[in-house]
Write a protein that binds this DNA or RNA. Structure first.
Lengths: 181, 181
DNA sequence: GTCTATATTCGGATAGAC
DNA sequence: GTCTATCCGAATATAGAC
């Protein structure tokens, strides 16, 4: 039972921020779900903003791992395909997907959050690893879109009667094609 | 000078909602920029939500136009390429792009807005027009992604030293490739 | 670490005069 | 159509006891 309260706050906050939005979620709600009072949260996080900052940190760390991995490898087409697959695998992990969704859905709330520029920078670094040095602009864009395509796949659940597995498989296929361009 | 106040409210609200977020923008701010008081806004819109609803209506109307156009045409590959180009052209018009960005960035705020389901429905209809009847799941996803790719292109402005024109041209190229799949 | 207050600020919205 | 004035609720945050 009773693990790290800090981690439980993060977990509940992440869920509520993603479902309802950052601004629409009050500390009262988070506290209620946790079974404590608002004041208790302030022991663990100085401000509401601090909670969100801690969540962004988690994502940056994961992106940086991917960048590290890419850099430890020769810059070949094979490496890039594997990088793409690894990115797709991460997106399947629920915590990572949740944080990603949270960020996609709360762009304006995060607008001038200092952590966000850090994140963009890391994402840019990652997308640079997706192209060889001599790639043309169109190729670079296509390769970056390969990453976006994986995200987009997660939005397409509405798309007819396809199962999640089918969509995942198909988006990976499309993403690989974008990488080949 | 002094045109329709209603339209000016929409215009200012759209800008602020997009820049700062829906919840983070107060009626006071909108009123101040317009040079009137909060109370004056209530003459033109019953609630804050009404303002946003009127903006979504604008986008749905534009999407419906595209659907209408597609339906008035034979279902050929050529028609789909042109539909894609028309969609890209719309995204270049500032008002349309702004509304699109507003919606992308305020997904949670719009979460259970009745207008939103209408919009999703229209978007789904449009993406169905992008594929022939006998398309496989992977093909359908690729064709839908062609639309998303155009949106994604708008996020990539950061991407190095490319001009907006170059990015626009390259994303269209990539989108067309996704359509060919 | 968590509680019970409580301070403070600001939001959306309405009433009624002009 | 726009104003002044005001209501009401809710949110973040703090102080200080246990």
């Amino acid at each position: 039972m009773r693990e790290d309260t800090r981690a439980r706050i993060q977990q509940i906050a992440l869920r509520l921020f993603t479902e309802q939005g950052y601004e629409a979620t009050s500390l009262r709600e988070i506290a209620e779900e946790l079974g404590v009072t608002k004041a208790a949260l302030y022991y663990h996080f100085k401000t509401k903003d601090d909670i969100v900052a801690s969540l962004v940190d988690l994502r940056v760390a994961e992106l940086e791992e991917l960048v590290e991995w890419a850099r430890s490898r020769p810059k070949t087409a094979e490496m890039r395909r594997e990088l793409l697959e690894r990115y797709a695998d991460r997106l399947k992990e629920s915590r990572y997907l949740e944080i990603t969704r949270f960020m996609e859905r709360n762009q304006t709330a995060m607008r001038d959050h200092p952590k966000l520029s850090k994140m963009r920078e890391t994402m840019l670094t990652l997308s640079r690893e997706m192209s060889p040095q001599d790639a043309t602009p169109a190729e670079r864009i296509s390769h970056s879109l390969a990453l976006f395509a994986l995200h987009a796949g997660k939005w397409l659940t509405v798309q007819g009667d396809l199962t999640e597995e089918e969509i995942d498989k198909a988006t990976r296929e499309v993403a690989l094609r974008l990488l080949e361009f």
